[in-house]
Design a protein around this nucleic acid. Structure first.
Lengths: 114, 114
DNA sequence: TAAGAATGAAACGCTACCGTAACGATTGAT
DNA sequence: ATCAATCGTTACGGTAGCGTTTCATTCTTA
């Protein structure tokens, strides 16, 4: 982006995207959940519960529960680490990728009419 | 903004802002709540519960409860309409304006390092 | 191999949100 | 003057999130 967003533009962008999310039929995730989802998809694996908790400065149960919820929605998947069976590796799914694609589209589209 | 956001940029922006929100000590509002707050501050008054509900495509109790929560935080204020005492006019507050200022700053700052 | 550390999950109590339905207050119409 | 319509709120039952603490499993190391 060439020009950083001014106050009014930033708020309009935020408003438009949020409004579309509220309108839409998508499951609307909590702030923490989206952040976790984005971290999983934007940073390089492997992602363990502990790593995610540390990155987001939240407790491990927060991550576990968020993965429970998003797992039910097929947005992420869990897998035991075969090397160290204490670890759980969080993995991406097709539905999760699609979800973020749509989110990105929404942001991109909203950014066009500022 | 001169150049609309690409997929990776959009998601990075979203991630960074959300992460800052999760880290921060601010009360993190729900998706609906922020949307309501933004609507109140960006669109011209008067704002009634019914209008807000219609704009966001949600039921009136959702608005009432969101105003309850945000009212406790002094982010918005309620006032009876003197002309038609059935109506409640939703009004802005200093704290609400500051909250959105900080949000806008966050978005603006994040938009700089894309 | 036995003791300890580390990991993720489960349990517990709490708070808060949602959708639907019912309600009191106020206004407008007949 | 009533009766119906409108407005916002409250009540109810249900779901889901949070923080903290506790637990079972697995690995490490002494």
């Amino acid at each position: 982006m060439a020009i950083p967003l001014g106050t009014a533009q930033a708020l309009k962008l935020w408003h438009d995207v949020n409004l579309a999310q509220v309108h839409g039929d998508e499951a609307d995730l909590s702030l923490r959940q989206v952040t976790i989802l984005l971290t999983i998809y934007m940073e390089a694996p492997p992602h363990t519960i502990r790593d995610l908790a540390r990155k987001l400065h939240v407790s491990k149960p927060v991550i576990t529960r968020a993965l429970d919820s998003m797992g039910k929605l097929d947005l992420v998947a869990r897998r035991r680490d075969v090397a160290d069976r204490r670890n759980v590796l969080v993995q991406r799914t097709v539905k999760g990728a699609l979800y973020l694609d749509r989110l990105a589209d929404l942001i991109g589209a909203s950014s066009k009419n500022l």
